[in-house]
């Protein structure tokens, strides 16, 4: 699994961080998404897919 984030689309909700704090964080200054792990381990795959689906800015893409 490879994760891609589009910082221009990020709205700063932080939904991804609530779901997968080992994979996503937010910048302190503006809340924009920071990708901590672009190739998360298999045990996080489901929750990362959910983060991509639930992202209100449609800023997360998962390539399987």
């Amino acid at each position: 699994m490879k994760v891609i984030v589009d910082q221009e689309k990020c709205c700063g909700a932080g939904t991804c961080v609530l779901l997968a704090p080992d994979v996503f964080d937010q910048r302190d200054e503006d809340g924009i998404v920071v990708l901590l792990d672009e190739a998360p381990p298999a045990e996080l795959a489901d929750v990362v897919r959910e983060a991509a689906s639930v992202c209100p800015g449609v800023a997360i893409t998962v390539n399987e």
Binding site: V17, L18, R27, D28, D30, G31
Partner: peptide, 13 residues
Amino acid sequence: LGWNMAKQARLLR
């Protein structure tokens, strides 16, 4: 409510 403080607002959720 966060005003230009998105991360800090989310942390208080």
